[in-house]
């Protein structure tokens, strides 16, 4: 269990979206474009690393029967602090990510990692887990967002890639497109993992 192996684990082999299937609600909602996916990914990664650090630091002080309540208080506080600080000092970033910040509270990945990893491991390893899971989440959002934006709008990050004659498949940026893309990509990742 080294820092690096924890880091890489979250990115692919235990990818939070494609393998563990956590945090699907915000994924379906914000993966309409690459830009949204990256924004949500970065914001969630930040909160995940912070909450992992604190949860790992207090893991020996918190009695088992109230641990979930404690984790939720910690996560909700971090999300609110991030929201306030960003709106005060990083307004451009806040305008781009603002709508995703409150959504992070309900992101199961954060609570899931607090419960499954940070509550049992050292602060050092929990940081690696937070970064790895965060990057894995971001990567997955990036993949889903790319497919949906490209097929549904003909663009990637706002640049037209498929030419003017391309007729966008509107359903891809509507909610059904989220399920279609997410399901297909999960199957692809599963198939690839079986081969390796």
């Amino acid at each position: 269990m080294s820092f690096n192996s924890e880091l890489i684990r979250g990115i692919w082999r235990e990818n939070p979206l494609f393998v563990i299937v956590l945090g699907t609600c915000p994924t379906l909602a914000v993966s309409t474009s690459v830009e949204n996916g990256i924004g949500m990914g970065i914001a969630a990664t930040f909160v995940l690393v912070c909450s992992n650090i604190v949860v790992a630091a207090v893991r020996k002080l918190v009695p088992d029967s109230v641990r979930i309540a404690v984790y939720i208080v910690i996560i909700a506080s971090f999300v609110t602090i991030v929201d306030l600080v960003m709106s005060a000092y990083f307004r451009t970033l806040y305008n781009a990510l603002g709508i995703f910040i409150p959504l992070i509270v309900v992101n199961c990945i954060i609570l899931g990692r607090a419960e499954a990893f940070a509550s049992k491991n050292s602060v050092f390893l929990s940081i690696a887990d937070g970064i790895g899971m965060g990057l894995g989440f971001t990567l997955a959002l990036l993949m889903i967002g790319s497919v949906r934006e490209l097929l549904g709008n003909g663009t990637i990050l706002g640049y037209h890639l498929l030419g003017g004659s391309y007729v966008p498949i509107l359903v891809m940026i509507l909610p059904p497109g989220a399920f279609l893309t997410y399901g297909t990509l999960t199957a692809v990742v599963k198939a690839v993992n079986k081969r390796i």
């Binding site: 002080l61 918190v62 009695p63 109230v66 309540a69 404690v70 208080v73 910690i74 909700a76 506080s77 609110t80 602090i81 306030l84 600080v85």
Partner: peptide, 17 residues
Amino acid sequence: VLTTVSALAGFSLAYVN
């Protein structure tokens, strides 16, 4: 434990706010 954690969270939120 719960009271302490909630109080700490409350204080830090008030401070940041």
